[in-house]
Nucleic acid binder design. Structure first.
Lengths: 197, 197
DNA sequence: TGTCAACGACACGCCACGTGTCGTCTCCTG
DNA sequence: CAGGAGACGACACGTGGCGTGTCGTTGACA
């Protein structure tokens, strides 16, 4: 029906203006109130141009976040795993605050209703982060700061689960002191040395 | 401006029809595609009647879930805390999985963009569940199945965080075997007896 | 039995959606 | 250095759900 456009002829200027406008509007009026028409107006671009390259508002924000994400929330390695996790998770928390205006929050909300967007979010945004976490975790294991048998999935769930749990149930994101408590607990959970059956 | 209606004169029949229609449509066409007009048509009710008693689609679904929720996902007490948590969490997982997941995930998605709805969800749907979990947890502590110093918030985050984390990042909800592993880890995390600083 | 408000019905303006059209301008190609 | 394909901005259009307003009708308290 509608033949796909030719990426080689794409206007880089328009693309950048659209992604920038999307993130700005998200911060100003919130993801929910932002519209495709608003993005087009702000970017000085025709609506048609947006629809030519993205299927939905969520896809635009996803791409904008994807571009920004590489420099955001990296996993530091100072040699102290717990401290590094605290640093990284604090960055994630800042990224999700305030929830009503955070692009990522809006994207997560949209993805709950749009399976195709959900897949894109998982593969382009989430999966690379899991990979980065896995690498940092493995170094911690090599350095004896984390039990060598610790499982990646379990660690991921226990570290980051509380953040998203609190985000989506509106229980308030962790304060620094509480974040420390959480990390302490998780590291203990990952050490089966004691206690077990 | 618009004076609040008199609850005494409210038609119970219309109210029930609206809540029923909302849950039915949610399951049939999904939360996102469901509209207030659709609910009104299905319930044989005027749109005005819905807007008279609820501010939004989310509020309707919230009330419908609130009515259904009391009998759903209680915290059993067989005397085995880990087994009871497995039972209860498996029920929650069923509610967050197809085909029954639509109302709750849709509501969660809406609440991420509507602060007033978010507050209602937290106070009416989430808070009572936290309370129920707290009571079961306290019994486990009294019976020596959980460390007496275990913190309610930490326990809540570690038990349920992984579920919502996996839900919103589309990582797949836990299988039974993995759920067991998680619970094992969490109970260990909540026992500071070993290891500490 | 009377009264008054909630009800169903229906109509309205609004706004964002997603698409279509057209003339312009830019950038590959030959 | 032309020529032409096509991405672009502009603008107009039909659609559909939103939230409100109006108007008889109905049904539940007093």
């Amino acid at each position: 029906m509608t033949k796909p456009p030719n990426p080689q002829r794409r206007s880089q200027k328009s693309r950048d203006a659209i992604l920038t406008a999307a993130l700005e509007l998200c911060g100003e009026e919130g993801y929910g109130r932002m519209t495709i028409e608003g993005i087009a107006a702000r970017a000085g671009v025709s609506k048609k141009t947006i629809y030519r390259w993205w299927p939905s508002k969520g896809a635009v924000v996803l791409e904008a976040l994807h571009e920004a994400a590489d420099t955001v929330a990296p996993h530091p390695d100072t040699g102290d795993f717990a401290a590094d996790m605290r640093t990284q998770m604090a960055t994630v928390i800042r990224f999700l605050s305030p929830p009503s205006h955070a692009p990522l929050t809006g994207l997560v909300a949209d993805a709950l209703r749009d399976p195709e967007l959900a897949e894109q979010v998982r593969e382009r945004l989430v999966r690379p982060r899991i990979e980065a976490f896995g690498q940092r975790m493995r170094r911690a294991q090599e350095q004896g700061q984390l039990h060598p048998d610790a499982d990646l999935n379990v660690a991921l769930d226990l570290f980051y689960g509380p953040l998203y749990h609190r985000l989506v149930l509106h229980l308030g994101l962790p304060e620094p002191a509480y974040l420390d408590t959480l990390i302490e607990h998780v590291i203990r959970a990952l050490d089966p040395g004691r206690g077990g059956s």
